[in-house]
Simulated assay, not measured.
Amino acid sequence: MTRYRHRAGELLVHADDCAALGPELARFGYHPAGAAGTLRRFTGTRPVPEVLAALREPHRAGPNHLFGADRIIWGDLRPRPTDKDLTPVPAGDIRHWAGVIDTGIVLREGRPHEFLGGRVRYDPEDTVRVVRGEDGNPAGSAGHGTFVAGVVLKQVGPAVGVRMKGVVDEQSGDTEDLAVANALDDLREEGITLINMSFSGETFEDTPPKAIEAALQRLSPDTVVVASAGNRGMRQRVYPAGIRPAPTVPGQVDDEHALVLPVGSADSSLTPRVADFSNFGPWIAAYADGVDVVGPYFHAGYPGQPPQEVPKFNGYAVWSGTSFSAAVVTGRIAAVMATGKSARDAAGEVLGAAGRITVFDVNGSSEVPHVQGN
């Protein structure tokens, strides 16, 4: 069984490689079936891992990888009710937009959550329906995008808004390589230079996902992409967070392409430390508060609970995960951008002014930026 997850019967090939690789793929029953940017989609019936293992040059083709918010919906890191809430901030003259690629926005009576109010922008396809279980409670990941957007907006004033791109499936919590790439292209065309991606996954032979990597290369060099490092408590690099070297490594900053910041979770309940669930390692650029984060979640009284359980869901929840650590960093960068700085300069200021968290690894200890959230 492969460790990476992918769309069955689909391979991605760069347009420049199609002439050479197409005939070989045809022998395995794979044929062109559409394009996205510089990539071509090939479809067939034989299992993708089997085809890749048989290709003479397997790295010239790649799976259409699937990414998700691991452990966040059905696993150990579930949203929990809280007696805390947040005071909505009315929208001002919004001059800066942070892009969020996620599940989309949940609407109730045609409106987003009151905390988001007029500070979130979306198209009809960026809204999400709530998948309900037999008990009537949410059975999927629909609330994830609203929560992430809310955590971003907690960090900023009324001049910053969130531009939501809904690509993560509300039931499975999955999103594919190509869908993320298309969302990145859309945000680029809208002139958005700060983007949050709170999902992750492993890839074929630990290589960057082809479509997302190509879309990142199309972004302007002053763009910053903040990505969650994953919730499996492991050292292994995951994607899309791991596509580029961490900017804290001397000599590895790439000024010709967008900057990707992989963010892990810190537990600040006592002395700040890496959260037990957070991925870690030298590839991570920063850690941010990610344990029991308060954010908007559906509406008061939903999800339903047994009468004896308190507190009740009050329209907000506490949730843990690197998804929300990434949102904290995105929000902090957006707040600095509102003072007139570029996304890249704002990211440098946020990480430079952050405290430090000690990370212990097989090679000893290191000090990594620790960004605190509101």
Rank of each mutant, 00 (worst) to 15 (best):
Thr45Tyr: 06
His31Lys: 11
Thr38Val: 13
Ala54Val: 07
Leu21Thr: 05
Glu24Gly: 07
Arg40Asn: 07
Ala53Asp: 07
Val51Asn: 00
Gly44Pro: 01
His14Ser: 08
Ala33Asn: 15
Val48Ser: 00
Gly34Gln: 07
His31Val: 09
Gly44Cys: 04
Ala36Phe: 12
Gly34Ala: 10
Leu21His: 04
Gly29Ser: 06
Cys18Met: 15
Val48Trp: 00
Cys18Leu: 15
Asp16Trp: 14
Leu25Lys: 07
Thr38Asn: 14
Cys18Trp: 11
Leu52Cys: 06
Gly22Leu: 10
His31Tyr: 09
His14Ile: 05
Thr45Ile: 09
Phe42Arg: 01
Arg46Asn: 09
Arg41Gly: 03
Gly22His: 07
Val13Leu: 11
Gly22Asp: 10
Phe28Ala: 06
Gly34Ser: 10
Ala35Val: 14
Thr38Cys: 13
Thr45Leu: 11
Ala33Val: 12
Arg40Pro: 00
Val48Phe: 01
Ala53Val: 00
Thr43Pro: 01
Leu25Trp: 05
Asp17Cys: 08
Leu21Arg: 04
Ala36Leu: 14
Tyr30Asp: 00
Pro23Gly: 06
Pro32Phe: 01
Gly44Ala: 04
Gly29Cys: 06
Gly22Met: 11
Ala20Cys: 09
Pro32Val: 02
Ala36Gly: 08
Arg46Asp: 09
Leu21Glu: 03
Gly29Tyr: 05
Ala26Asp: 12
Gly22Arg: 07
Ala19His: 14
Asp17His: 11
Asp17Trp: 09
Ala35Cys: 15
Val51Trp: 00
Thr45His: 12
Ala35Pro: 08
Gly29Gln: 05
Ala20Gln: 10
Cys18Lys: 14
Ala36Tyr: 11
Glu24Met: 10
Tyr30Ala: 02
Arg27Tyr: 10
Phe42Trp: 02
Pro47Ile: 01
Leu39Lys: 03
Ala33Gly: 14
Leu21Asp: 00
Leu39Pro: 02
Gly29Met: 05
Thr45Arg: 13
Gly22Thr: 10
Leu52Gln: 00
Gly29Trp: 03
Ala33Asp: 15
Cys18Asn: 13
Asp16Tyr: 13
